[in-house]
Design a protein around this nucleic acid. Structure first.
Lengths: 256, 256
DNA sequence: TAGTGGTCTAGACCACCTC
DNA sequence: AGGTGGTCTAGACCACTAC
């Protein structure tokens, strides 16, 4: 027989109850002491079991309140909608998508000059530590921190497109502004990863547990890379989607 | 002054040392008792700090051995390489990509009849719990569990394409087999999410800590969905890539 | 004020690895 | 055998929330 440690038995029992909706989304779990009595375990052992479920993203805890079953709400970002002149939009797809979902987007924004990290440098093909312009966005949906987005532009491009270095939004969108001065983004390469947040990311995105989704887009003109955008998304709140090829079958679904 | 709890101070100090390569990748950390003496904390407090770093994916622990700084090795899957007749490949891109990276792929494979989960049913547009054929793949790279892949085919398609329900591989690849009988996949919709693994996933993929990357591809003919493939990837080992548009600038990079 | 979770301790015993 | 991490206990005190 495969004997599990007691804290795992506690976690398994509670997980089963949560999946079977004995404890529904948003409802509160019994207190640590009550669970301790129920399972015949010390408070610390119960806490180990609960910590497992917290790390799995099933429950969350707040001091003075107790443990609560988390409700899941996912926002989908369409990453394949082409960022070009055929889709008029401000900045990028974010405002469009969030508003379309009936939610209220907001953001803080800043521009700075920053040395290229190794990660960025190899993608926009500049020397490590060389100067870049960083346009940084901290995004919220209904005032909940949702994602951060950092776009790096190489120095040579900023010389051609000085408005990139100016603080404040570019009304018509950076992609369109660049196209207007003859630098057109004709393709991009996306990379998607996941990992646990750094303490800094956890602070910015108000993450108490669970992973982040990292989405890097390197945009190319017909001759060279022109930007690198790194988006850090709360994993529990976001999903990325790509639609590729002929999807006429999908559109029909939405007809009356 | 913002006083951090002692176990966080421990974690922060060790994290800094790891990032500054005081403890390099693959090297061992001092034992819990040594750290306890160093930081003037009880063993349990030290363990809380170390647990934080484990959950962040920075270190791993093994009973009897100690804590080790993890080395990162990421395998990139190109998800946008079109799955059609222009790219000859077995099954899908997996074998091609892994072999190209100089690694040894292996897999176990099974076919079964399974009722559609709600998630699958809404994607291939069949009734919940209706019959589907599930082709399941457990994949390894150099014998390390890497990902699982489950593809669901709707019942109506299996009637037209009976080999889908036969156990064993389809030599020329399922996409090509289907094209051969007139069911061509002309487009697909990908969805990408992340979360912590379920206990079952942790077992199959041998995950001690860290998230999984979930990649769902729904394939369409010109009139309806024909399959739904759910790939579960170890987050620490995998990255997804999409290349879209004109990337002639990227190809040049690889010339002499 | 009472109840909740958050931190911390001191000590015990077990399971696993290396020598 | 000796050292490592893994589990578990009993108890203390603190911080936060509710009433």
């Amino acid at each position: 027989m495969n004997k599990q440690p007691k804290y795992r038995q506690v976690a398994d029992a509670l997980r089963r109850d949560i999946n079977n909706a004995v404890y529904g989304p948003g409802s509160r779990l019994p207190s640590e002491s009550e669970l301790g009595e129920h399972f015949g375990a010390s408070r610390n052992t119960i806490r180990s079991g609960l910590a497992l479920l917290v790390s799995e993203g099933l429950i969350s805890s707040s001091q003075g309140l107790g443990y609560e079953v988390r409700k899941h709400e996912v926002f989908e970002l369409n990453a394949s909608r082409f960022e070009n002149l055929t889709f008029p939009q401000n900045g990028d797809a974010y405002n469009t998508d969030v508003t379309a979902a009936g939610r209220r987007p907001s953001q803080t924004f800043r521009v700075e000059v920053a040395p290229a990290t190794e990660y960025v440098a190899e993608r926009i093909r500049v020397a490590r530590e060389s100067t870049t312009v960083l346009r940084f966005c901290h995004r919220f949906v209904d005032d909940v921190p949702w994602s951060t987005q950092a776009t790096y532009y190489p120095d040579w491009l900023v010389k051609e497109a000085p408005r990139l270095a100016e603080p404040g939004d570019i009304e018509e969108g950076t992609t369109r502004y660049l196209a207007g001065i003859g630098v057109e983004q004709v393709g991009y390469r996306d990379e998607i990863e996941t990992r646990m947040p750094t303490p800094e990311e956890a602070r910015l995105l108000d993450i108490s547990a669970g992973p982040v989704l990292l989405w890097t887009r390197t945009g190319y003109s017909d001759t060279k890379p022109i930007r690198c955008t790194i988006t850090t998304l709360r994993g529990d709140l976001n999903r990325l989607a790509y639609e590729i090829g002929n999807l006429s079958a999908l559109e029909e679904e939405l007809l009356p």
